[in-house]
């Protein structure tokens, strides 16, 4: 018993030390640097300033953030539109086939997402699989532009993040009590009414969890818009990278990172708040 406790304590201590050393400390360094002056000779100078945070809100930099956020919102809505029907289907299909279908959702993610993005390039390029097929079938006269457009970016983002939407939705929909649906139908509700008044509200936790799990990572996936969209617009990921590497402006890059972390934390806070409300309303 005593030995067991010792093991538990060591495990926790090691983990905490690890997190402190490699997560907390580096992030604190970023926060500190974001409040210092830039110095061309040595990355930063020990002189406090908040000017970098003010600079974040000038029109050009603000545009970088709004552009990134709009990609993320679009991606979240699209993954929801694709993931919800699939999650529903998955929860209604026979128990024996479910593990296989879940495997099919998860297995592609054992391959690096960068490699899968390059595979999408092969599918969508002008002399690629999709265009060859369309041309052979005689559906189009010349190759259709898919690669290096917004369509390609959304396809890439949705494809990469879909499991993060499907899995939480499936978890919620699978537990949904079918007797509630029968009761609703018996009481004269139409199919649409059953969905809107019973299924949707009860699956809201899954929708929220899935959305947050898609939205947050999509803010950081700048290599997908770069590779599939042709890097024609600047997203917050590229922006931060350029500040650090090209212009050697570590404090400004740090300020942008801290701001991004704040956006993410506030999204999480909103999520937790909504879930608390939701749970309370279900209880009462």
């Amino acid at each position: 018993m005593n030995e067991n406790k010792g093991f538990k304590n060591t495990a926790i201590t090691v983990n905490m030390l690890w997190i402190c050393l490699f997560v907390l400390v580096p992030n604190l360094i970023v926060v500190v640097i974001s409040f210092l002056e830039r110095d061309p000779a040595g990355f930063f100078r020990w002189e406090p300033t908040i000017s970098h945070y003010i600079d974040l809100f000038d029109p050009v930099n603000a545009r970088v953030f709004t552009h990134s956020l709009s990609y993320s919102f679009g991606t979240t809505l699209l993954t929801l539109a694709v993931g919800y029907p699939f999650g529903w289907f998955l929860s209604r299909v026979g128990r024996r086939r479910r593990p296989l279908l879940l495997m099919l959702v998860i297995v592609p993610f054992w391959t690096s997402s960068l490699i899968r993005t390059y595979a999408l390039v092969i599918l969508m390029k002008a002399n690629g699989v999709i265009n060859s097929l369309l041309l052979t079938l005689g559906l189009v006269k010349g190759p259709v532009s898919i690669l290096y457009t917004d369509v390609a970016v959304y396809v890439g983002l949705v494809y990469s993040l879909l499991p993060f939407m499907i899995l939480p939705l499936y978890a919620v929909l699978e537990k949904l009590d079918t007797r509630l649906l029968e009761a609703a139908r018996d009481l004269g509700a139409t199919r649409v009414q059953v969905f809107m008044k019973v299924v949707l509200p009860l699956s809201l936790p899954g929708v929220m969890a899935g959305s947050i799990m898609v939205f947050l990572p999509s803010l950081g996936l700048f290599y997908i818009p770069d590779l599939l969209g042709g890097a024609k617009s600047m997203l917050v990921g590229n922006f931060i990278k350029n500040q650090f590497l090209t212009s050697g402006n570590w404090p400004f890059g740090s300020a942008a990172s801290v701001f991004l972390i704040l956006v993410m934390v506030s999204m999480m806070a909103i999520y937790l708040l909504v879930m608390k409300r939701f749970n309370r309303s279900v209880m009462s």
Binding site: V64, K232, S233, N242, G248, N249
Partner: peptide, 14 residues
Amino acid sequence: ILVYERYWERLKTG
């Protein structure tokens, strides 16, 4: 390089 970077951002944000 800061001037270049600034115009680069403007180019890409339109």
